[in-house]
Design a protein around this nucleic acid. Structure first.
Length: 218
DNA sequence: CGTTCGATGCACT
DNA sequence: GTGCATCGAACGT
């Protein structure tokens, strides 16, 4: 299956367009020869200094510098002191924006993913495949992505995003919702998910396909 | 089913 | 010193 890295021009576009087109592509990480990969099934846009939830909201700082840099690079930062979250920088250089990758459908290196998840938190086992890369903090653990990958070039580096031709293969339907896990900027529907996909994060059944049905309670 | 809460590190005021 | 773009265990209902 031929795979090619998404070109720089792919990222140098309006962020919501990039977000839509990013769903279905594959995030690949090679670490110590071990290769893990997952198809992007959930992501969110953070766009410009006017977006209160974007890290660029306070203007340029040392931390958010990658957002102002060239598109097609990774912005990886630590949040809650625990989780490395990975973003893809978008828009032409100078326009701070990025896409937070929130969930993947595991594609390659499932054993390594499981090993890493178990090592990080000794919690056992009951981990089904769909949960390996569910959630932005979980997928970085599964793929072994750390802060060392901040500013990494996503166009053909060891951390990269590729199109393997499977992007629309599943006939997936995309659903746009407000972003989750934030306290401001919750009005914009800048979260894009594959509707009903079991690997998507957030409240289960929130994607409409199979809302949990509950008998009326007294 | 739902909500609460602790762990944890770093950038920023 | 404060505040997170989180996670999952532990509890309440």
């Amino acid at each position: 299956m031929p795979e090619h890295a998404l070109p720089r021009a792919f990222y140098a576009r309006p962020t919501l367009d990039v977000l839509r087109d990013l769903i279905g592509t594959v995030l690949v990480h090679e670490s110590r020869g071990a290769r893990t990969a997952g198809r992007i099934i959930e992501a969110e846009a953070y766009i410009g200094e006017a977006d209160p939830a974007c890290h660029a909201a306070p203007g340029p700082t040392r931390r958010n510098a990658p957002l102002y840099g060239p598109p097609g690079h990774a912005y990886v930062y630590l949040n809650y002191g625990l989780h490395a979250l990975v973003n893809a920088v978008t828009e032409p250089e100078g326009r701070p924006a990025a896409i937070l990758i929130r969930a993947l459908e595991p594609v390659e290196g499932l054993a390594a993913m499981r090993r890493r998840r178990l090592r990080v938190r000794g919690t056992a086992d009951g981990l089904i495949d769909d949960a390996l890369c569910r959630g932005p903090g979980n997928l970085t653990v599964a793929l072994g992505i750390t802060l060392a990958r901040n500013r990494a070039d996503l166009v053909g580096g060891r951390l990269r995003i590729v199109d393997d031709g499977g992007s629309r293969a599943g006939g997936w339907r995309l659903e746009w919702t407000p972003r989750i896990g934030i306290r401001v900027g919750t009005d914009a529907r800048w979260r894009c998910v594959v509707a009903g996909h079991p690997g998507v994060s957030g409240p289960r059944g929130a994607t409409g396909a199979d809302s949990p049905r509950r008998p009326a309670l007294r």
